[in-house]
Simulated assay, not measured.
Amino acid sequence: MYLQSPLPTSPGATLPLDRQQTAAAVLQLVLLGALTAAAGLGPAGWLAGAAYAAGLHTLLGGAARRARAAALGPADLVTLGRAVLIGGVTALVVDGFVAAPAAVVPLVGLASVALALDFVDGRVARRTGTASALGARFDMEADAFLVLVLSVQVAAVTGPWVLVIGGLRYAFVAAGRLLPWLTGSLPARFSAKAVAAAQGIVLVVAAAGVLPVLAAGALVALALAALLWSFGRDTLLLYRRRA
């Protein structure tokens, strides 16, 4: 059903929200079909990809309506494209656990493009003047889910401890429901952004299998240490500001 209320349309948007989301869902199915032909994606991968697409449609639609946005802007559409690629990565990882090992080349390729586009949507938002809280949250959630899925893939090789990388952010959010002071605002820090970006890059390198297992494990351990330091510093700052 189309949005009928006079909600503001983001500058540069050409289609209403529901049509944008429908296009993304179609692209997700096309990508799953391509992965079936090229990488032998099986029923488990299709089920995971379809569930992911349905979840994306529901959560993004709800967030956009709460933000009173009738359509996604140019930068948000870039993030939506990233989200479709992440759906393909998710399907490959799940299929690899249920059936044959995940096809590394398409998995690494999709994840690499999704990470590269993370440097594009911010620039598009600034150049078009369409930066928004919704877009920033969408971008952050896409990043977090990609890291979670990649950590699951890498954990199969280096050990379950890698799951801490993917789960730490979600654990932090869950802890905020019990400790409200954890939901306070934090200053923008380049170091925090660099550490967050490094997680995806390191996990893609580890998933690609281009390094010996021990070297990949050491690299991921360094990334985890940096992430724990970043979260620990933020937690300490929020604790000091809790009053």
Rank of each mutant, 00 (worst) to 15 (best):
P8F: 13
T9C: 10
G12V: 09
G12Y: 08
T14V: 14
T14G: 13
T14Q: 15
P16V: 12
P16H: 13
D18Y: 11
Q21D: 13
L32H: 08
G33E: 06
G40V: 09
L41T: 01
W46A: 14
A48N: 07
A48P: 01
A48H: 04
A51T: 10
L59Y: 12
L60N: 10
R65E: 07
L72G: 05
L72T: 06
G73K: 06
P74Y: 14
L85K: 06
L85Q: 01
A91W: 05
A91I: 04
A99S: 14
A100R: 15
P101C: 14
A102W: 12
A103T: 11
V105I: 13
V105T: 14
G109F: 07
S112A: 15
A114D: 06
A114W: 04
D118T: 01
F119I: 12
R123A: 05
A125W: 00
R126A: 10
R127E: 05
T130L: 00
A133Q: 12
L134K: 05
F138V: 02
A142Y: 04
L146C: 00
L146W: 00
L148H: 05
V154L: 07
V154T: 08
V154I: 07
A155G: 12
A156L: 12
W161N: 07
I165F: 04
G167T: 11
G167N: 05
L168V: 02
R169Q: 02
F172A: 08
A175E: 00
L179G: 02
P180H: 08
P180K: 01
W181G: 03
T183F: 00
G184A: 03
G184R: 02
L186P: 04
R189H: 03
R189L: 09
S191D: 09
K193L: 02
K193Q: 08
V195F: 04
A196I: 04
A196E: 09
A197Q: 10
V205T: 14
G209C: 08
L214F: 12
L214K: 13
A218E: 11
L219E: 09
L222S: 13
S230N: 08
F231M: 01
Y239S: 09
R242D: 00
R242C: 00
A243T: 07
